[in-house]
Simulated scan of single mutants.
Amino acid sequence: MSKQTAIGSLGRTQEILKKYGIRAKKSYGQNFLTDVNVLKKIVAAADINRDDNVIEIGPGIGALTEQLALAAGQVLALEIDQSLLPVLDDVLAPYDNVTVVNQDVLKADLPSLIKQHFSDLQKPVKVVANLPYYITSPILMGLLASPVSFDCICVMMQKEVAERLAAKPGTKQYGALTLAIQYHGQAQLAFGVSRHSFVPAPNVDSAIVTISPRKAPLARLPFSQQALFKVIRGCFAHRRKSLRNNLKRFVGKDATVLSKSVAVLDQLGIDPQLRPEKLTLLQFIDLTNGLHEAHLIS
Rank of each mutant, 00 (worst) to 15 (best):
K248H: 07
K260F: 05
V264S: 04
A6F: 05
Q14F: 01
G8E: 06
G192T: 15
A45R: 07
T136C: 00
S112V: 00
I232H: 09
R244Y: 12
V91P: 00
P94E: 02
A190E: 15
T13W: 02
Q186P: 00
Q273N: 15
V101R: 10
N245V: 03
V231S: 11
G269K: 13
V251G: 12
I153N: 04
D266P: 04
E160A: 00
N246T: 01
H238Q: 13
S149N: 15
D205L: 04
A77Q: 01
I80F: 12
R249C: 00
G175A: 04
T34R: 08
I211M: 06
G252L: 06
V128D: 10
A63L: 05
S27V: 07
S259D: 13
T256M: 00
L64M: 11
V262H: 10
I211P: 04
A46C: 09
I285G: 00
P200M: 09
P169N: 01
A24V: 12
V105R: 05
R239S: 01
Q30E: 14
Q74D: 14
S9W: 03
P124I: 06
D104K: 07
V209H: 12
D51T: 15
L165A: 10
K41I: 02
S27G: 02
I285P: 03
F150S: 06
L268I: 03
V264D: 06
L17Q: 11
Q182R: 15
L70K: 15
G175E: 09
F236M: 06
V125A: 08
Q273R: 12
N130A: 01
V199N: 10
G142K: 04
V54C: 10
Q103H: 12
S146N: 14
H295L: 13
A176D: 09
L39I: 08
R23I: 11
A176N: 08
L88T: 02
A72Q: 08
D47G: 04
V101D: 07
L281P: 10
R244I: 01
L17C: 10
G11A: 14
I297D: 12
N53Y: 08
R50Y: 14
L268Q: 02
A162S: 13
L228E: 14
A263V: 04
Y95C: 04
A46E: 10
P94K: 00
C154V: 08
R275M: 02
K26E: 03
L274V: 10
D151M: 01
N203C: 01
Q30L: 10
L144P: 03
N245L: 00
A255V: 09
T34M: 02
L179H: 13
L258T: 13
L140D: 01
V38G: 02
G73M: 08
G11M: 10
L287P: 05
V204E: 14
V105H: 09
L282G: 00
V127W: 13
L17M: 13
H295S: 13
L282K: 04
H184S: 05
V36T: 12
A237S: 15
A216L: 14
H292E: 14
E293P: 00
L64I: 15
L291M: 09
L85Y: 12
A167M: 09
I297P: 08
I285H: 05
Q30A: 08
A46Y: 13
V36H: 03
C152T: 11
Q267L: 02
G29H: 11
F198N: 08
S298V: 11
H292R: 14
G170D: 11
Q158D: 06
P200A: 11
